[in-house]
Every structure is written in structure tokens, then in C-alpha cells.
Amino acid sequence: MHSLDRTISDIVLIVDDIPENLALLHDALDEAGHTVLVATHGEAALQRARQSLPDVILLDAVMPGMDGFEVARRLKADFVTQHIPIVFMTGLTETEHVVAAFAAGGADYVTKPIRPPEVLARIAAHVMNARQMRQARTALDAFGQATVAVRAADSRIVWQTPLARALLHSYFGNPESVAPEELLHWIAAAHRARAEHRPPSPLLFAQAQKRLLASFHDQTGDDEWLVVLREENDASAVESLIAAFRLTQREAEVLYWVVQGKTSKDIGDILGSSPRTVNKHLEHIFEKLGVETRTAAANLAMGKMRGTQG
């Protein structure tokens, strides 16, 4: 989406319609080693934020046309930019502006006349927080944890890892900031099951050879739920068994259904073979895996499959 290199420096977007303010802040931030972008009105700010995904936005509260509060509301309503911390710049005596700034989604504010050392300190703190959040989400994805935080009261997705976003889009094609109905129903049902000391069903959605499973990770607030998603895919599981144990396609399919607890007759029905043919495949599978029982084969296979589903 953008070619700016944030490994070299943090990116700061300054939004102000007064050239003197822009010049003062630009010079101070540039000298401190930040990459500085500027916008002189609301529309330009929205466009630049979406294109460049700055690490923090310094936003003037009062501007002609679209004011800073409306800019902030739009940034926070857009999933692509809602994670970016916004530091408002407001007049010293305008208390109602401070209240409005936080209501619009601001993370902090600095008062005019602007003092560059204070601005630099605030920016450093918010950039660090934002980076830690990004790293946490990236780490969750790296461990196969497709994680989504949902606020049940208004059906909003508070945040989600890229892997969770891809899964939700793949299964439900939903808008990025709104939780799909299926997930909200699952949360409600799982919440009831917990209250009644029953294990909640992990199945969220099934289609053809794929299933999307869900489990509670934690409750992050009074009405916010952290849900971990996991995809089970018959085809990818079979592929992983072929690769892990050097099985033929049909042997891997038989082993896959053994893991699912199916009998030789069940497997024959599923694959269009006789139970005798299935048992012949099982003999070859046992030999290749170095085991003697279906249970031992299933346990070995399950370990390999678990590493590929998620």
C-alpha cells in the first residue's frame, strides 16, 4: 500500500491548515529523525493516512471545512486506519475541545502554542504503544492464532489479526469492522454454555471440506470477547499426511478418516471402496508409520495435521 520504510524511522502525519504550525512541527520532528508527512485539510489527511499508514497522526482540532474531530471519527471508522494513534492539537483554554477530542477517538492532546519537546515526548510514547500492539498481533498470527476481539453490544470488531481477517472474509465476506452474525451467535451460545458449566461447541461454520472452529481466548472487557479462529481443511490435512509419511493419496485419505474415528466400513463408503481394500491400505500405512494399531497411527497423524491447520 505504501513504500515508506518504517524500519529506518517512524512516520508522523501532521494535519494543520496553518503553514507556520506545519513548519515548526515539521522541522522539530525531522530533526528528531522522524519521517514527516503533511496535510493541510481533512480530505487530504484521510487520503494520506490510508495510503501511508503513519505510526501516529498529529491533528489540529479546528480547521475550515472538515474539522479535526470529523477527521478523527472517519479515521476510527475505517478499519485500515483505526489503529493509528491520534494526538490532537487544541487551544489552551478550550476544555470542550479536549472532551470532543477523546470522544472522537483521540489518544492524547497537546495544547497550543505548541512546544516541540512535549510533542516529541507524546509521539514517542504512542508510537511505542502502537508498535507493541502491532507486534502482539503479528506474533499471534505467527503462532497460527487467528484472533479477533468482538464487542458484543454493537457487533463491532475492536481489532483482529490479519489471519483472522482473511478467514472471516473467506467464510462470510463480511465488512472488516462488523462481526458476522454467525460469530455473534456463536459467542452468545458459547457464553451460555460457559454459564451453565458446559463445554461450548467449537464449530462456527462448515462448508464442503472445510470447517471454521472457534474458541474463547479471554474476556478483555465487560462486553469484549477475544476469540481464536482455526480452519480445518480436509484437503490440506491429507496433503500434510502425504508429505509427512510418504503415503499415496488414497493411503493418506484412509488415515485422515481413521483420525476422524471412522470404521473401515465408514471409510469404504466415503471413498467408494470395499472395507477389505481399506484394510489393505491400513496395512501399508501401519508399515510406513512403524505402528501396529489404528490408535497409534491416529495419534501420530494427529500431531502432523495439527501443525498444518490453523
Rank of each mutant, 00 (worst) to 15 (best):
S3K: 13
S3H: 15
L4Y: 14
L4P: 10
T7D: 11
V15Y: 04
P19S: 10
P19F: 05
D27H: 08
A28M: 12
A28N: 10
T40W: 00
E43V: 11
A45G: 12
R48G: 05
A49F: 08
R50F: 10
L53E: 08
L53C: 08
D55L: 03
I57L: 02
A61N: 05
A61H: 09
M63A: 09
M66A: 10
M66H: 12
D67L: 07
G68H: 03
F69C: 10
R74W: 06
Q82E: 04
M89E: 03
E96M: 05
A100H: 06
A100T: 14
A100I: 05
A101D: 09
G105Q: 13
G106R: 09
T111A: 11
K112R: 15
P113W: 05
R115P: 00
R115A: 07
E118P: 02
L120M: 08
I123G: 00
A125P: 01
H126M: 03
N129A: 12
R134Q: 14
A136G: 04
A136S: 09
D141A: 09
A142Q: 13
F143K: 08
F143R: 08
Q145S: 12
Q145Y: 12
A146F: 05
T147I: 11
A149D: 09
V158T: 14
Q160H: 07
T161R: 02
T161P: 09
R165E: 14
A166L: 11
Y171D: 06
G173A: 10
G173W: 12
P175F: 08
E176A: 15
S177A: 15
P180Q: 04
E181C: 04
E182I: 06
L184S: 06
W186N: 06
A190S: 13
H191T: 15
R192M: 12
A195N: 02
A195I: 00
P202F: 04
F205W: 15
Q209A: 12
K210D: 11
A214G: 05
Q219Y: 10
T220D: 04
L226F: 00
V227K: 01
V228Y: 04
L229T: 04
E231R: 10
E232S: 07
V238G: 03
E239G: 00
S240H: 01
L241R: 02
A243N: 05
A244E: 06
A244W: 01
R246L: 06
L247H: 01
Q249V: 11
E253Q: 15
V254R: 02
V254I: 07
Y256C: 00
W257Q: 07
Q260G: 00
T263R: 13
S264N: 15
D269S: 10
S274D: 05
P275E: 13
K280M: 14
E283G: 07
F286S: 02
L289A: 05
A298G: 01
L300P: 00
M302H: 10
R306T: 12
R306C: 03
T308D: 06
